[in-house]
Design a protein around this nucleic acid. Structure first.
Lengths: 113, 113
DNA sequence: TTGACGCATGCCGATATCGGCATATGATCG
DNA sequence: CGATCATATGCCGATATCGGCATGCGTCAA
């Protein structure tokens, strides 16, 4: 056994910085592959591969438009991520207090040594 | 050149399902490694490694408690993820409309053939 | 039909990742 | 000090990932 379940879920898809950039660009509307590649400074095959991953997890759709293929955003898959992180919201508000506790503990630890 | 920037950012850290589970468990409070490993059905070294990743991106902190080492949540790093996905919120609300457009286009395409 | 364009795919090399195992390190207690 | 518990680390094998390049395939225009 080796390497478990990382592929083809949304969390993995957006772990790649370039893929996040693609999604951001697509908020501006549908775009063909070449244009995306150019705007992001990557090769066309590179863009195609990232788009494939995004398509497989359902974050983009594609549509033929004559000779071109237009990619468009389907952001619904991002909602679970938003909600999952939202489940920690009250904790990042508490964090300063907790950090204080932590600092206190550190001080105590040092004094013991 | 090969393989670019995936490591040591929060998006990557939470791309791993087991690491997400760890974070969820830690919402219940600090816990030692062994306990986490047991509750999640993984080995102790496995848990330690995931905790290391989470520590390196700042999502957990550790604190010595006698013989043990307690891991605790520091959720502040999840905030950027929440906000980034939040930037797509209006798009996942629109998505049904867009999906309709898409279906229309599909029909047209088929009729042409 | 032939050529040109737009895009996808296949293959490769370099590297990163994850799980499992053994073992090192660190702390506590007798 | 020596034994023992708690955790980290190192090494390995299997696999996945990403970028680059060449090339395949489909579509349109002449």
């Amino acid at each position: 056994m080796a390497r478990a379940a990382t592929t083809s879920d949304v969390f993995n898809a957006i772990a790649e910085p370039q893929r996040r950039e693609i999604l951001v660009l697509l908020r501006g509307g549908e775009r063909p592959v070449t244009e995306l590649a150019e705007e992001l400074g990557m090769t066309q095959p590179g863009a195609s591969k990232h788009l494939r991953v995004l398509r497989e997890v359902g974050l983009v759709r594609d549509r033929k438009a004559g000779k071109q293929r237009l990619y468009g955003l389907d952001a619904r898959g991002l909602r679970p991520v938003h909600e999952w992180t939202g489940g920690f919201q009250r904790f990042w508000n508490e964090s300063f207090d907790r950090l204080d506790e932590y600092v206190q503990d550190l001080k105590q630890t040092r004094e013991k040594e």
